[in-house]
Design a binder for these strands. Structure first.
Lengths: 204, 204
DNA sequence: TCTAATTTTGACCAATTGGTTAAATTAAAC
DNA sequence: GTTTAATTTAACCAATTGGTCAAAATTAGA
């Protein structure tokens, strides 16, 4: 058997499936559309991934690992908090700009199967405890205000994700659907989110 | 013709459709499921709303008006900013707790038809300009920091909506899927979001 | 009460969709 | 080169789904 050929087809399928699933969701995605985008026969799709659900699960796992990128390495770096936060927000929003449908996809499909979600999180290597500990240390060092460290993290993520997930809405409501103006707004947020958070948590 | 009966059936359909659409989305929703939930025949569904798309559009408009509740009246009240913000966050999160699928529904289905989205927003009576002006006045009065007023509003909404939209994720990652602990967390946020925002924007 | 309009229903339909199968093609093993 | 196994394809299938239709039931109006 030629591994090269097999890997190639499988890879093509995974890329195509990710595109279609992220845009249309599980229910809106069509196996035929995925086959077309991969440039293969629909039967071949079922040859590699027996059912739509199995293919979807594979994609969900793959996508989930992308949404929490080098988050952990950043948190564990020994940069000062200000720079750490700035770097995180910037690369995170960068990634979201390239994959604007990603947040909504996760948020929507997350509710499909709670047990599966739990297993995906466990397998993803994301360790919120470690991030919380990082913030706790900064609190004990008197650098930032005492508060629930989970809340700090969730606030940062919320401020980063929401304006992209709600892009079309914000674009229409605040920028008369001018995409350039909206993109500039998001671009600026790479800096202002950090300021906003630091102004709130830093002990002056 | 008996208006009472007609209104009753139509109302039953609208309620059932809202439940099904919000949980399953446009693609995942089944006309049969809506008919069942409304306790009527599927043909009757098509008698009142000719197509699935027409029914969906009616629901989207209805739901959209719920997600920005008495927002405008709150903004226009002459309470001091601190109380205004506190009241908004509290009632807003209250509403979201009762309709946890609502944000994801809007975020997902928003991309289906941009023109329709724009028309819905225009018709919804939400006026972001007026809210921006309110923040601008507070800036000119030297009460809060000078910044893009749109950003203030979006940050408040992001901090309120995201932790509910991402509920299952947060529940698993931070609370070992303990719903009670998660709910307490959200409950506390009714206060802490306000503090978080005020700490950041207030001029001390 | 009788009639016309409206509302409700059950049976039905065409199109779509996920999935199968058997045959054909390609690659690997000997 | 022949055989064997893996990959790819075209044709097909059963189930689901949005939607229709004609008849039945209910209501309104005279």
């Amino acid at each position: 058997m030629n591994d090269l050929k097999k890997d190639n087809t499988e890879e093509k399928i995974l890329i195509a499936a990710q595109n279609v699933f992220i845009e249309k969701g599980m229910d809106g995605a069509r196996m035929q559309a995925i086959a077309d985008e991969a440039g293969i026969n629909k039967a071949l799709l079922h040859y590699y991934f027996r059912t739509k659900e199995k293919l979807f699960n594979a994609i969900f796992i793959k996508v989930f690992s992308q949404i929490f990128p080098n988050l952990m390495t950043m948190v564990l770096s020994d940069l000062p908090l200000e720079e750490k936060l700035g770097a995180f927000v910037e690369t995170y929003i960068d990634m979201l700009q390239k994959n604007p449908f990603l947040p909504t996809f996760i948020l929507k499909e997350m509710n499909r199967n709670p047990d599966f979600l739990a297993s995906v999180i466990k397998g993803s290597g994301v360790n919120p405890q470690e991030i919380s500990n990082m913030f706790k240390k900064e609190m004990e060092a008197g650098k930032i205000k005492r508060m629930d460290p989970r809340e700090v993290l969730i606030n940062i993520i919320a401020l980063s994700i929401f304006p992209i997930a709600a892009g079309p809405l914000i674009s229409v409501m605040f920028f008369e659907n001018d995409k350039t103006a909206y993109n500039e707004f998001i671009e600026k947020r790479k800096k202002t989110i950090t300021e906003f958070v630091l102004d709130s948590i830093l002990l002056k």
